[in-house]
Design a protein around this nucleic acid. Sequence first.
DNA 1: TATACTTTGATAAATATTGCACAATATAAA
DNA 2: TTTATATTGTGCAATATTTATCAAAGTATA
Lengths: 222, 222
Amino acid sequence: MRVAEPTVERLVQYFRLLQQIQKEGQEVVSSLQIGQLLGIKASQVRKDLSYFGEIGKRGVGYNVKRLCGHIENILSSPKVWKVALAGVGNLGMALMGHTAFQSYKFNVEALFDVDPEKVDSDIMGIHCWNVVDMPRIMEEKGIEVLILAVPASAAQTCVDRAAECKRLKGILAFTPASVVVPDNILFYTVDIFVELEKLMFFLKQQEKNNKLYSTNEENMLK
Amino acid sequence: MRVAEPTVERLVQYFRLLQQIQKEGQEVVSSLQIGQLLGIKASQVRKDLSYFGEIGKRGVGYNVKRLCGHIENILSSPKVWKVALAGVGNLGMALMGHTAFQSYKFNVEALFDVDPEKVDSDIMGIHCWNVVDMPRIMEEKGIEVLILAVPASAAQTCVDRAAECKRLKGILAFTPASVVVPDNILFYTVDIFVELEKLMFFLKQQEKNNKLYSTNEENMLK
DNA sequence: TATACTTTGATAAATATTGCACAATATAAA
DNA sequence: TTTATATTGTGCAATATTTATCAAAGTATA
């Protein structure tokens, strides 16, 4: 049973929204309401939710608590992933402190950096090793997921070192670089550079359209 | 002329890769090579590149320098955008220091935070105001783009305040929250929580498949 | 109970995106 | 010059994704 990436993305959004709704005490929710709050068509919401079995009640809607648990089951794995973080600079630190990383679903067990100030010290209670020791330490600790927050120039070396670890299954990179990753490792990128450029492209596009519109309006007045 | 989001995303990737290739001194590149380096089909690369006019040479490939300039023209606007950053915590600071923000394409002209320690001080050379003054300051400065790095709980208020500014055209949010944004403002989210959850979902999925495979293999041996 | 209204789940239609195949063009070699 | 090889640009086919539609099923009300 293959699930498309956009679907998973929306499921995560539903999950977060539902937790919020639940906190507010609402017990039942409709696909229409979910859709309006997230800017998604109601039929899309229903399709996503019914994909894993009938969970709503016709004429009524979805029980918030039940739906929330249902989605959590779909998304989460029963295990706690062993995670390492490479790059304990501004971004790395920000990530460690980020609410998204305060999850019971994984455990950061090792840090890696090149800065001698940081290497061999404990940062936020976790030990930091030299990046050159990545293969050994990651193997020893059985790390399965790597969070990459190193500068672009260091990204490829870092991935190569990490990939030596047999148990590594996935990498989440916050690095503005194109890196080559072995096929057997899942690789996701959160690319701030790309997102910024995209935003600017569409802003530019929108300005163009506005200019066109105003010209058209002027023409229509003639 | 409407351009699809996935296309723009790939264009940005091409652009970055081409800059790298150019730096390495390579003068000509083929769609196949680009594709292999980025994990994209060559036909897709060609389609993307030819969308804005014939730029390659049949039988030869693309002139790296020319193609690079070509894509830059497509992506970049001729103007420098006026940007504000709300939330000068770990993440906000990390963003300001991030290479992606060292761009000539925009200029961070104001910071906003709630922390009295930060308000009215200069951080990395830019003045920080109290978030309650966002509408006024943003209007005065003519801010067009807002970078949002505030905690989830503050996101909606922040967006509401910013949206009062008539000139605001786009928001790039790094906030793990669903917020409602006026239609006329472009809104992009870099949602670390969502990305982490997606990674974990597909990791889980992969483990399942592996189990299935090994069972199948065992069966085949019988 | 009958009627009107709500909302899901499922199917079908519409869109969007990707990938294939090949003619057109360029270069290199025979 | 002819032939072989490389590589683009593009129309069309194949996939994937989203949206619309509607019967089925629940609730509320007269």
